[in-house]
Design a protein around this nucleic acid. Structure first.
Ligand SMILES: [Mn+2]
Ligand SMILES: [Mn+2]
Ligand SMILES: [Zn+2]
Ligand SMILES: [Zn+2]
Lengths: 138, 138
DNA sequence: TAATAGTTTGCAACTTTGTTGCAAATATTT
DNA sequence: AAATATTTGCAACAAAGTTGCAAACTATTA
């Protein structure tokens, strides 16, 4: 397991450090999206805030994790499961945020529908974020 | 015009003040969504930051404006054109953010498609945010 | 495996964004 | 016009994010 994580880092030309390993492990263990603060607490504040910021940024650039836009404007991150690469994300799935427990899920098998835009507009990315009550909260 | 604005405020049981009038006017004049900072600059910093925060919050609560989630996590606001009321928003249209000029549009006539969620999930709101190149930038 | 070169981390200091309490100013009601 | 209710601006604070740099660590090479 720890080896798999190191593999992913190496494949992305990142040196294998304790913080990166631990943070990437967290994403693999987690069933839902994580915010900066979640990572801080789940690592017992062992890493500096700056390190976490930089790690998340690096992972996003490498196509290891993706961001999820939210209505309340907190930044959330989740593992990319599609084939995302350096600078080219491809996470065309719907996201769901529970208004009750706050958990955010990647609905990997529900893909974002094609949206037909007015003439003159070109789309590079489409985010669909649904919110409501999740299966655990009803 | 200024009278129309005052009317809207009264209809929503808000006292008609200079800052509220001016800010609501800005939204009516603007063809795109506005961020807190846009309002600050377009009003020549005549109002305190706190006043702008509170005004935006009040307008959202009253269903006069709605927020737009963004991938880069800046908060954007735009006029509600549907029949939104106190605590009940109904802005089921797609939003478009231009990667080149940053302008954010409400695509009022493009409605959010129905998303079929897994069993156990109930949706209260669905945001669709597309990004790419807008008609002015290509 | 030890030395070196390259990369990442933590700290400090700072900026930007957002929040709260409260007195003064303004708007509404009588 | 006075009384009442609401809003505003200030100050102080809290939370979130950024940057430069020396020390620590990782990878490479000999
Ligand atoms: Mn996802
Ligand atoms: Mn809109
Ligand atoms: Zn839930
Ligand atoms: Zn544009």
């Amino acid at each position: 397991m720890k080896n798999d994580i190191a593999e992913i880092l190496k494949r992305n030309q990142l040196s294998v450090t304790e913080s990166r390993t631990k943070i990437l492990e967290l994403f693999h263990e987690s069933k839902s999206a994580l915010a900066h603060a979640d990572i801080e607490s789940k690592t017992d504040e062992s890493y500096d805030r700056v390190t976490i910021y930089r790690t998340l940024q690096t992972f996003v650039e490498k196509g290891i994790i993706h961001t999820i836009p939210t209505a309340d404007n907190s930044v959330l991150y989740a593992l990319c499961k599609d084939e995302c690469t350096q600078g080219k994300h491809n996470d065309n799935h719907v996201h769901f945020i529970c208004d009750s427990c706050g958990t955010t899920f990647c609905l990997d098998h529900i893909s974002v529908p094609e949206i037909i835009l007015p003439k003159g507009f070109t789309t590079h990315r489409t985010d669909v974020v649904a919110s409501g009550i999740c299966k655990n909260c009803r």
